[in-house]
Design a protein around this nucleic acid. Structure first.
Lengths: 231, 231
DNA sequence: CGCATGGTTGAGAGGTCTCAAGAAAGGTGG
DNA sequence: CCACCTTTCTTGAGACCTCTCAACCATGCG
């Protein structure tokens, strides 16, 4: 049974993700696995109900953290991709109109009640993951505050490609982008129409190629140049 | 000597701040005090040199976390006010053009090397402080992504007043706002000129009053209404 | 085949920006 | 205590990026 658990853990997205932040021994993975519990599915648009719920890992599918203003304007604060942890950093401040929502069909694995990680390897790895999320949030602030639509889009596409590459969900410069342009708009602080025009422009500039929900980065150098931040 | 240390700790801004996130016993404060070290001063504009340095508490003065793009555009990601901790959440990702900078004359107290907090009261309080910072970062994303200049300004002023009130640095609706309009501009993702016009408008609307660096919130209800997020 | 959903395009409006210059405020040396 | 200089605030005018409104097109599905 231990072998089976380890087998499941080793090739799961969250283990691939966590390993980016430090080496994990088999015993660490077994420990982690023992502290994870039931698997659940969500349909696109469903609220993941952060408040009061235990944290979870995304096994597959995309989700987001979104805030809706009284008049309906919506800002997506962060994307959650397969392997990402949700709720470990207690952003579950119980507050306001902040909700976590499935963007695609979603499979998640909840932590068991009372989940903790020590300060050992597992703890450091979790701290690294939390730092990475904070770093992405900072990127988001910079995008929204000081970049043009074109720059924001370039930067976001590079971020998404990078994050998907970490868990092996890219084929070269190609990846699956399973969200409507409306979602990109609410992420980048733009209107749906302008997102569309921006993508058109990037196509004309040969920076990207889109077929359905398949996104191809045709010119990484130009995208990096355009995204400026230069990260 | 223990009494002296506790005396200093009890009325310091960071203790007032931390106590917001849970009760702390005298022994907790003594423990914290023992893990804090030297005090240092910075002049406005100086880099606090996050990378590789231990975390610190601001004893007095304001600082910020800022990212500068290649062409000089700057985005201030977060303000640090007296009592705030800087660097405890390892945003010190060693990365890019992200710097912490003094905005006013600053006095900070560094943690001693190897600083840690357990999972006891002190640890929970630190976790609460980290969650609050993340929550403010989310507010910042919403402001920048989906609010107008007027709304952004109203929301930021309310946030700053609230944070200063926590440490007793307000007198009713009056507080000291020690930053240039340029700093507000780089925080709110606006131009200096537009910040000025927005403040003028809020004055004409009798929402605020400004005398030098003294800011008065004249109409909290209207400010809250304008800031929308309704937090 | 018709409807629903999501993508695309046009045109005008509007919020914010840039450039530019003048006014106010604050510090410093004579 | 004043003259001067620097910094910061203020205001005007036109440009520009992005928005809103409104269609129209493409795709998929029952």
């Amino acid at each position: 049974m231990l072998a089976a658990l380890e087998g499941r853990a080793i090739d799961s997205a969250y283990v691939r993700r966590l390993r980016r932040f430090g080496s994990l021994l088999d015993e660490d993975l077994a420990l982690l696995e023992a502290r994870l519990g039931r698997i659940e599915s969500y349909r696109p648009g469903r609220d993941l109900g952060l408040v009061g719920a235990p944290p979870m890992f995304l096994l597959s599918g995309w989700a987001c953290l979104a805030h809706t203003l009284r008049d309906g304007r919506r800002q997506i604060v962060a994307f959650f991709l397969p392997g990402d942890g949700v709720g470990f950093d207690l952003l579950t401040g119980s507050q306001r109109s902040l909700v976590a929502m499935a963007l695609t069909p979603l499979k998640v694995r909840y932590a068991k009640p009372g989940f903790t990680v020590g300060v050992e390897r597992l703890g450091r790895v979790f701290a690294g993951a939390a730092a990475a999320q904070l770093s992405r949030m900072i990127d988001q602030v910079v995008r929204l505050g000081r970049q043009t639509a074109y720059e924001r889009m370039a930067h976001l596409l590079l971020e998404l490609h990078g994050r998907l590459a970490e868990i092996g969900e890219t084929r070269g410069e190609v990846f699956h982008l399973p969200v409507k342009q409306e979602i990109l708009a609410d992420t980048l602080g733009l209107s749906l129409v302008h997102v569309n025009r921006t993508l058109q422009q990037m196509r004309r500039d040969q920076l990207i190629d889109i077929h359905g929900s398949q996104m191809t980065l045709l010119n990484r150098a130009a995208l990096t140049e355009a995204s400026d931040q230069g990260s």
